[in-house]
């Protein structure tokens, strides 16, 4: 999907849903509260615009389900 022009240059966080085991580490460690747990108990990106690209979530995801791309 092409990137929204407004988001160019901003970090992009993506979660591979099928690999997420719902441990909640990413949600707890994210300093900007970008992620939340959904009704199925899996992490989802709720506020992508707040992401600062620190990669706390990706580095601490035990299941390698999170990717953060920083341009």
């Amino acid at each position: 999907m092409p990137k929204d022009p407004a988001n160019i240059g901003k970090p992009e966080v993506a979660i591979k849903d099928s690999w997420c085991k719902g441990c909640g580490i990413c949600v707890a460690l994210c300093p900007k509260k970008v992620l939340v747990m959904n009704a199925q108990g899996k992490a989802v990106v709720a506020c992508p615009e707040k992401c600062v690209g620190c990669k706390m979530c990706a580095e601490h995801c035990p299941d390698y389900a999170i990717t953060v791309e920083v341009e």
């Binding site: 099928s18 690999w19 085991k21 719902g22 580095e59 035990p62 299941d63 390698y64």
Partner: peptide, 22 residues
């Protein structure tokens, strides 16, 4: 460096092994 066909791994939710392995 991973055997992707073996992932996701069998460790429990929240286990630190995946983090340390990375």
């Amino acid at each position: 460096f991973y055997r992707l066909d073996r992932l996701p791994h069998i460790w429990c939710p929240g286990c630190g092994n995946g983090i340390v392995l990375a």
